[in-house]
Design a protein around this nucleic acid. Structure first.
Lengths: 110, 110
DNA sequence: TTAATTTATTGCAATATTACGATTAATATT
DNA sequence: AATATTAATCGTAATATTGCAATAAATTAA
């Protein structure tokens, strides 16, 4: 985050921006959409699905996992990744609250 | 976006990630929340509200304006910034669709 | 016109992100 | 054990983001 300090902002603001940041790359959006579309998934599928190299996909998966939005279980030589439903729901609540801030009360000053 | 090309992804995926990216910094989240909270706003207020230098706030405002989420009208020596309601609603639809992807149909494989 | 006020722009420096080749680690198969 | 398969990690180059001092631009007030 450059030189800015998280202490300058509220916990809520920091949480929102952390979730948003992870959605701020189309590859991670595509990974999540693919995980939603199918039941289970291995990393290799994603490498084929998305046109990026295996280490790159692995790195994106790591970020998603670190934020708790996905989980991965080792299954033989491959890894089964899927959406972490409980955490996704928590994230959705936080993001939706931010997106649904009420517009109607404000005068349109501009 | 590093070396990745937007052509690799769908329009929808690119849109989602662009919106998410702008929310990916707590200062911009704070700016938007402040604009929602009050009717109108000048840049100076935001510099006081958020603990960042005036050029930095101006830069964040520029990004928000570029994406169409806020609009700014010159009023004397100051500028009145506010939420672009129509565009905010459009953005909200796109983001909500992404966040509301159905979980119930999927087996939890992990 | 001059000075004051407010915001935008420029020009960096510091940091973060992204991508991938090469390699390693872990497991499965033969 | 040796080989194959799959994903993670390391190292590094390219690019993007962030923050701010200095300055410019625009408007208002005296």
């Amino acid at each position: 985050m450059g030189l800015a300090k998280t202490e300058m902002f509220t916990d809520q603001q920091n949480k929102i921006s952390l979730f948003a940041k992870v959605f701020g790359h189309p590859a991670r959006v595509a990974i999540l959409q693919h995980l939603f579309k199918i039941d289970s998934c291995v990393c290799g599928d994603l490498v084929n699905e998305i046109g990026l190299a295996q280490p790159t996909i692995s790195q994106h998966l790591k970020e998603l996992k670190h934020l708790g939005l996905i989980k991965g279980n080792v299954e033989g030589t491959s890894v089964c990744y899927c959406i972490h439903k409980e955490n996704w729901t928590v994230m959705k609540t936080i993001m939706t609250e931010f997106l649904n801030q009420d517009l109607s009360e404000n005068q349109d000053c501009c």
